Simulated scan of single mutants.
Amino acid sequence: MKKEILRAVKFIVDNNLVKGTWGNVSIREGNIIYITPSGVPYDKLKEGMISVVDFNGNLVEGLKPSSELPTHIEIYKSRKDVRAIVHTHPVFSSTISVVSSEIPPIIEDAVMILGPEIKVSEYALPGTWELAKNVVDALSDNHAVILKNHGLITVGTNIDEALTASLICEKTAEIYLYALNIGNFSTISNEDAVMLRNKYLNSYRHMGKDVR
């Protein structure tokens, strides 16, 4: 799990999804959560530094966990299918967080992988249980949620799915912003969006795509 965390943080840095020490990544294994520590530059992060905590937030080993641990805990508690969480601050998704309450169903791959609509959660201060509740409410059974005036969280049954979801959401946010600027765009019907989403959940997601 620790090697997977290191691979994931390299991925989000290489794909320009974070700057500095912002953002965090976690993987769940049973009732244990492996999560990036607080304030450690990603290029300095080593396996032994990675925080290991239980579902009560108690530190088992490693350094002090990310301040966003409450949100990770609440997502894992509410979504038994989720085994990995990626929190990033990409430009286009973050822009959506200050100008819109959602991204409607505009692109097929986003509808399939992320959900029919990508919601923006209500604002709350970072690292709080209030934020955690708002995120869980807006995420629902989707694979992405944008945090108001903050950034992006994506989830998956494994780290690859969560990382892919981050890229898809950022691409979709960029497209939506271009569409808003043009002022005329089409959406996928709710009926078709639900069908596409179910097709992904029941078929495509099991093809084992790897983002290495």
Rank of each mutant, 00 (worst) to 15 (best):
L6G: 05
I12Y: 14
V13N: 06
V13I: 08
E29G: 04
G30E: 06
N31S: 09
N31C: 07
Y34G: 00
Y34P: 05
I35N: 06
T36N: 04
P41L: 05
G48D: 15
G48I: 00
S51A: 11
V53L: 09
N56I: 06
G57I: 01
E68K: 01
P70F: 04
T71G: 05
I73M: 07
Y76N: 03
S94D: 11
V99G: 10
S100T: 00
S100D: 13
I103H: 09
I103K: 03
P104D: 01
I107M: 13
G115I: 02
K119M: 11
E130G: 02
V136P: 09
D137H: 09
D141I: 00
L147P: 05
G151Q: 01
L152R: 01
L152F: 07
I153M: 04
G156A: 04
G156D: 03
T157V: 08
N158Y: 06
I159C: 00
E161I: 00
E161P: 06
A165H: 07
L167Y: 12
L167M: 12
C169Y: 08
T172F: 14
A173F: 12
N184A: 09
T187G: 08
N190V: 06
E191H: 09
V194Q: 13
L196I: 04
N198P: 13
R205N: 06
D210A: 02
